[in-house]
Amino acid sequence: MRFGQLASIASVLVIFAAVAYYANQDLESALNQAKPWMNPVVSQNEVAALGWVKANTAERTIFASDIFGGELLMSVLREGTEGGDWAIVPNVVQRMHDMQYDFYEANSSEQAWRIALKYNAEYAWVPDRALFPGFAWKGVNYAIFDNSPYFEKVFDNGHRIYKVKK
């Protein structure tokens, strides 16, 4: 084989090797960036609770929920106070603010209860995971719901559902 042919093949191999080296790094980076998006966020107990929801509530029943809880409930044709497409929802930012600070982070059980009533929620969705009502991730404060004259626990497998008293 002559020098020209050898050089041609070698140069293409060098280009392939260089591109393959960086492509491998890019692919690795892409996979690492995509993996967190695979996190279902919702808990296994929460998904299991859908069985109770289907058996004990009517379609379109509204639950006071965070965004991920509300969207999980939609999958069985119930509704959350949050979650879904916010494009044309009136006062949607106020709603997020209410659910974040005056429901899940309420100072009192009564304050949370008033917010649940404001959005026609019949139940409160209280998962065993971090919550995201629109502004920040927060842990659950069970004290708002337990031993309260405003809420009654109706389901508990780790994930809890409370009936909002009228």
Binding site: W37, M38, N39, P40, V41, V42, Q44, V47, F68, E71, L72, M74, S75, G83, G84, D85
Partner: peptide
């Protein structure tokens, strides 16, 4: 790979 499909991005809507 997860027990439930991805939920980020309103998938359940």
């Amino acid at each position: 790979k997860e027990f439930y499909y991805p939920t980020f991005g309103n998938t359940n809507l």
